[in-house]
C-alpha cells in the first residue's frame, strides 16, 4: 500500500502545495492592497465550475479560464476610468451570482457545488494532487523568477520603468499566477475561502519580518502550519476542513501580531 493511498496524507500534501504557492503570491496581494482582487478571481471560479459542470468540460481548465477572464475584464474596466473597488464589486458579485444561477439552470448538481464553495480536501485524489502540485510549482516558479521585477513594480511603476522593467508585464504575471492559485486551491479550501489563504499568512508573517523575502518565507511557514493544523483540528473535532484551516491561520495571525507588538514595546 503506497503512502498516497491514505486520504489524510493526500489531504496534507494538497494543503501544503496550496500553502507553498499562495503564501509568496499573497505577499504581493497584501503589498499592492489587492486582497479583494483575489476574492473576485475566486468568485469567477464559481462561474467556471458552473459552466464546466453544465457543458461537461473538465473543471480545472474552466476555472482557470474564468479566473483569467475576470482578471482581464477588471484590468480593462479600471483602465477605462472605473475605480478599482467599483470594477471589482460589479464583476465579482456578477460572476458569483451568474455562476449560482447557471448551476441551477444547467443541471441538477446543486450538491456538488457545495464542495466547490467550501472545498473538500479529504476527497483529493492522486491525480488532483498532481494538478495541485503542478500548479503550485508553476506559480512558485513564476513568483521567484519575477521576484525583483514584481517587487520594484509594486513599489513604484516609474522606478521600475527607469530600471527597464515593464510594470504592466509584471502585473500580468501576477494576474496569471493568481488565476492558477485559485484554480488549484478550489479543492482545498473552496471558492469562498481562497482569498483568506492569500491574505492571512502574509499578514501574520509581517510583524516579525524585516525584508520582503523573510515575510514570504514566514508566510509559507504560517500557511503550511495552518494547512496541517487545520487538517488535524478537523479530524479531531469533526469540523469542516477548509474553514478549520482558515481558523488556524487566523489564530496564528493573532499570536504573531501580539508577539510583534510585544517585541516592539516590551512590557
Amino acid at each position: 500500500m503506497s503512502l498516497l493511498d491514505d486520504f489524510l496524507v493526500r489531504a496534507a500534501l494538497a494543503g501544503l502545495g496550496v500553502a507553498l504557492a499562495a503564501a509568496p503570491l499573497g505577499c504581493f496581494v497584501v503589498w499592492r492592497r489587492m486582497a479583494y482582487f483575489g476574492e473576485a478571481t475566486a468568485h469567477a471560479a464559481v462561474l467556471g465550475v458552473a459552466l464546466a459542470l453544465g457543458l461537461g468540460l473538465s473543471v480545472m481548465p474552466s476555472v482557470l479560464a474564468a479566473a483569467l477572464l475576470m482578471a482581464l475584464l477588471v484590468s480593462t474596466m479600471t483602465g477605462r476610468g472605473f475605480a478599482m473597488d467599483t470594477a471589482l464589486g460589479v464583476m465579482s458579485h456578477t460572476a458569483l451570482a451568474a455562476g449560482l444561477v447557471a448551476v441551477t439552470l444547467l443541471s441538477d448538481v446543486r450538491l456538488d457545488l457545495m464542495a466547490y464553495l467550501f472545498g473538500d480536501i479529504l476527497a483529493v485524489t492522486a491525480s488532483d494532487l498532481g494538478v495541485i502540485w503542478g500548479g503550485a510549482a508553476l506559480v512558485l516558479g513564476l513568483t521567484i523568477w519575477r521576484w525583483s521585477g514584481l517587487l520594484l513594480s509594486t513599489l513604484n511603476p516609474d522606478l521600475a520603468r527607469a530600471s527597464g522593467i515593464d510594470p504592466r508585464r509584471e502585473e500580468l504575471v501576477l494576474t496569471l499566477a493568481l488565476a492558477v492559485v485559485v484554480a488549484v486551491a478550489i479543492k482545498v479550501v473552496g471558492v469562498l475561502l481562497i482569498a483568506s489563504l492569500l491574505v492571512i499568512p502574509p499578514a501574520a508573517a509581517r510583524p516579525l519580518a524585516r525584508t520582503p523575502e523573510a515575510m514570504a518565507l514566514g508566510a509559507v511557514g504560517v500557511g503550511a502550519l495552518s494547512a496541517l493544523g487545520g487538517l488535524w483540528a478537523a479530524y479531531q473535532f469533526d469540523t469542516p476542513t477548509g474553514p478549520s484551516i482558515v481558523c488556524i491561520a487566523a489564530l496564528l495571525f493573532l499570536v504573531l501580531t501580539l508577539a510583534g507588538a510585544l517585541r516592539r514595546h516590551p512590557a
Binding site: L155, A160, A209, T211, P212
Partner: peptide, 12 residues
Amino acid sequence: LPLTVRRFLELP
C-alpha cells in the same frame, strides 16, 4: 511591506 534601505537599493 518590510524593506530595509539596503534591500531597496538592491532592486532589481
